[in-house]
Design a protein around this nucleic acid. Structure first.
Length: 572
DNA sequence: CTGGGGAAGGGGCCC
DNA sequence: TGGGCCCCTTCCCCA
């Protein structure tokens, strides 16, 4: 029995030893496998990182090559050495923000466009960014390699201007923020600064990158800090017009003049509430599918519908100074009402004044210029003052552009356009994409294009009137101040406008330069002759809704209704 | 009462 | 920046 107990004890000891040995061996095996496994994981991770890096480089390379090809196709073979203009007008389906943008980035490290310059272009971005801009940095070599372009991750919502400001500040200070440098690894070479310098010194340029959509976006913002309520370009420190022509450059169709911008905001009303002058706060949205690249003889905007055009054209001065040229386009297409893009000349021509002058409404009737009809966005262009949405009285009326185009401007514009197109001098190398009129200066073209775009950056502080020219605003303000600096030397009459005085003086001189071809009548004012001509033509477009009687002038109709039918209704 | 002319107000835009 | 010219609109007056 005792032996039996000893035997069992020995067996138990042996088994314990064996078990311990087995456990130790198992643990050893597990440790070895674990080490191997970890090693494999580490190697795989390293491989993945390397592959990912290669993939990014390949994507960048591909997109650059694609952009280069696109630019070569679209840009004329020759290119001015100092000024590069990029068209970016694009319409979009009415009432739809097609969501997305196409971006066109000129690498900031180069100061001029070259055919061999890599350009990143996104052709199919599906993002919902509202910004589309082109920035061309010039003379960056002079800025030195210390400069840096800002590349920041794209946000689907509007960028915080403050953030841009901060980032820009960092860049200006030479500090590479994580955001700013996040995607710079693909371009290890020194990046040049893309600052857009203005007199105000507040224009910022921010390069944004959205790698998941293979989009590089360049944005620039004008972060002016002026507290003036008025959206006065001059207030922004813009210099006078006077841009020297760049020698050797060809004609440039320039669309969407926007060298200076812009707080981006959707709601002008918000801007009003926040104190931002809406005229200084145009937003930009563009159809990603239609954004052109480079220069085109004609931009086909008819594919889209411009509900809103924002050009940030607050410049009365020229930007293309010597070698420092930065062209930034920013296009706004805003969802507006459901008014059809049709236009009735009869209903508008005689109603211009009372209907306000802010709404632009183009239709196919703008066919006086075939170029315009064929290639410009006018025939599909229903635009309005970007700020007019906040201007109730003028919001639903007005037709400035049509009146201008259909009345006097069609002839004048055609004449001017013909002169511009026939005159191939370098003095007028900036061609208006709407009327082909040529301008020697980019900013002059910008100002001119307000005629077509309806952009009215100058707002009256006393009323809701807005103007496309600063001088118009200044003249208008005499209406409020009552100042009439022009006095007649023959009588007591005083006038707010010099032209009024000059016209008035015909009363004293008896000059009547406007004669009727149908009779002997002569008139001192062209408008009176025009009205008189209706006597001969029998044109009586204004019919009384009560009695059907027709009148040649609306004023006659109004008087008639006031005298007759208003009293009748009273009696009723 | 109506038609029509005279004249002024005011904005658009080019130069 | 302002001058100048254009335009449309509106008011007034008169036959």
């Amino acid at each position: 029995m005792a032996n039996c107990v000893v035997f069992h004890t020995q067996i138990a000891s042996v088994m314990e030893v064996l078990a311990n040995a087995a456990v130790a061996e198992i643990c050893k095996l597990v440790d070895d496998d674990y080490a191997v496994f970890r090693l494999e994981i580490t190697q795989s991770q390293k491989e993945n990182r390397g592959l990912r890096r290669k993939l990014q480089l390949l994507e960048l390379k591909v997109s650059r090559e694609r952009a280069e090809r696109t630019m070569r196709e679209r840009v004329l073979a020759s290119r001015p050495s100092s000024v590069k203009i990029l068209d970016q007008y694009r319409g979009m389906a009415r009432g739809h923000l097609s969501g997305g943008h196409k971006s066109f980035v000129k690498p900031a490290r180069d100061n001029t466009w070259r055919d061999d310059q890599p350009i990143t272009v996104d052709e199919g971005s599906g993002t919902s960014s509202q910004h589309i801009m082109v920035i061309e940095s010039v003379d960056v070599e002079a800025a030195g390699p210390g400069g840096s372009s800002l590349v920041k991750q794209e946000r689907t919502e509007e960028d915080d201007p403050q953030q841009n400001r901060n980032i820009q500040t960092e860049a200006a200070a030479g500090v590479a923020s994580p955001l700013a440098t996040k995607y710079l690894t693909a371009s290890p070479q020194p990046r040049t600064k893309t600052n857009i310098t203005e007199d105000s010194g507040t224009l910022n340029a921010v390069l944004k990158s959205e790698t998941d959509t293979e989009t590089l976006i360049v944005t620039q913002r004008l972060l002016h800090t002026g507290s003036d309520h008025r959206s006065d370009p001059e207030r922004l420190g813009l210099g006078p017009i006077g841009c020297p022509p760049a020698p050797g450059s060809e004609y440039l169709l320039y669309s969407n003049p926007s060298p200076r911008t812009v707080h981006s905001h959707r709601d002008a009303g918000d801007a009003l509430e926040t104190g931002n002058d809406p005229s200084c706060s145009y937003n930009t949205e563009v159809d990603p599918g239609n954004m052109p690249l480079g220069l085109e003889t004609h931009n086909d905007l008819s594919r889209g519908d411009w509900n809103r055009y924002s050009s940030s054209v607050y410049s009365e001065g020229c930007l293309d100074k010597k070698e420092e040229v930065i062209v930034v386009d920013e296009v706004t297409v805003k969802v507006e009402g459901d008014a059809p893009p049709t236009w009735n000349a009869d209903s508008h021509l005689g109603d211009r004044h009372s209907q306000g002058r802010d709404l632009l409404d183009y239709s196919g009737s703008l066919g006086t210029n075939q170029n315009v009809a064929t290639h410009s966005p006018l025939h599909a262009f229903r635009d309005r003052d970007p700020v007019s949405t906040t201007m109730g009285p003028s919001d639903s009326h007005g037709n400035i552009l049509f009146n201008q185009v259909l009345n006097s401007k069609d002839q004048r514009t055609k004449a001017q356009a013909g002169g511009a197109t026939s005159d191939n001098s370098n003095e007028k190398r900036f061609l208006c994409m709407f009327c082909n009129k040529g301008f020697s200066c980019l900013q002059k073209l910008e100002i001119h294009q307000r005629v077509h775009t309806g952009v009215k950056p100058f707002s009256c502080t006393q009323c809701h009137m807005r103007f496309s020219h600063s001088s118009s605003l200044k003249r208008h303000q005499r209406v409020h101040t009552g100042v009439k600096p022009f006095s007649c030397t023959q009588c007591h009459m005083r006038f707010a406008q010099a032209g009024d005085l000059k016209r008035h003086q015909r009363v004293h001189t008896g000059e009547k330069p406007y004669s009727c071809t149908q009779c002997h009548m002569r008139f001192a004012q062209a408008g009176n002759l025009k009205m008189h001509l209706k006597v001969h033509t029998g044109e009586r477009p204004f019919a009384c809704t009560d009695c059907g009687k027709r009148f040649s002038e609306r004023s006659y109709l109004m008087i008639h209704q006031q005298k007759n039918h208003s009293t009748l209704e009273h009696r009723k």
